[in-house]
């Protein structure tokens, strides 16, 4: 253990020295990104990198999130403890706070989605806020997942990836290159991708919290009977 510690300390030392000797200023790719910003359809450079120059990264990132949900669905298959237990331990302060916060969080999420075009924000931030609103509701004992129909779970989880692929393939028809937006429509295409992606990301985060499923009550009773048999 000590030898390992020394080796890791040496690694930290070497990498720190490498960072120390880097030039104090480096333009990196900032100028290249700024030069094409006008044609990217958005004025926030980070969003233009995420959804235009390096849209492949974002497409694969949405895919990775979706695969994680699938893997959790297979490995855990729903929330075995159940929302019912949490709603027994609910407290009135949390419920009151959630009542105030939920509409505000939905509003903030929509704002973040829209503002991503020209200021810090975007689909992932919006999805994270919306997802945490959903988790907070569950923790306060509001089981809204009961109202999600069976097809709704699948649609919510896959709509981001589907829209992304459809827009990418549509670009291929128009421009000849996958995910190469026509500059005139870039802004709207990015928004069309971001809105369902944000919803899908929120759904995926909630599903990961619930052990891979969005509809916990139904799954919970199934799993309980499974465990009762085994």
């Amino acid at each position: 253990m000590t030898i390992g510690g020394v080796l890791i300390a040496a690694l930290v030392g070497i990498v720190s020295y490498a960072i120390w000797t880097l030039p104090a200023q480096s333009a990196g790719l900032a100028d290249a990104a700024a030069a094409e910003l006008e044609r990217s359809g958005v004025s926030n450079p980070v969003t233009s990198v995420l959804l235009n120059y390096r849209a492949y990264d974002t497409l694969l990132e949405v895919t990775v999130l979706w695969l994680a949900v699938l893997a959790a669905m297979v490995l855990v298959g729903g929330w075995s403890t159940g929302v019912g237990q949490i709603s027994e331990t609910q407290n009135p302060v949390l419920r009151g706070l959630v009542r105030l916060l939920t509409p505000l969080m939905i509003l903030v999420s929509g704002y973040l989605l829209w503002v991503g075009g020209h200021a810090p924000g975007g689909a992932f931030q919006a999805g994270a806020v919306l997802g945490s609103a959903g988790v907070l509701l569950l923790l306060a004992g509001v089981d809204w997942t009961r109202k999600v129909p069976p097809w709704g779970e699948r649609v919510l989880l896959t709509m981001g990836l589907t829209t992304f692929m459809v827009v990418g393939l549509g670009d291929m028809l128009l421009e000849g290159v996958f995910l190469e937006y026509p500059p005139a429509y870039a802004k709207w295409l990015i928004l069309i991708i971001e809105a369902p992606s944000g919803l899908s990301i929120a759904a995926a985060l909630i599903a990961l919290f619930l052990g891979g499923r969005l509809r916990c009550r139904h799954i919970m009773s199934e799993q309980m009977s499974d465990e009762g048999v085994s």
């Binding site: 990198v49 999130l65 994680a68 990961l208």
Partner: peptide, 27 residues
């Protein structure tokens, strides 16, 4: 470290991607 003072957006976008991948991997 850019001379202009406005940070390089490419590492920022990569970190944003990385955070989501880290969340997926953690889950």
């Amino acid at each position: 470290r850019t001379p202009s003072g406005a940070p390089d957006p490419i590492p920022h976008a990569m970190v944003l991607t990385g955070i989501v991948v880290a969340v997926s991997a953690t889950a």
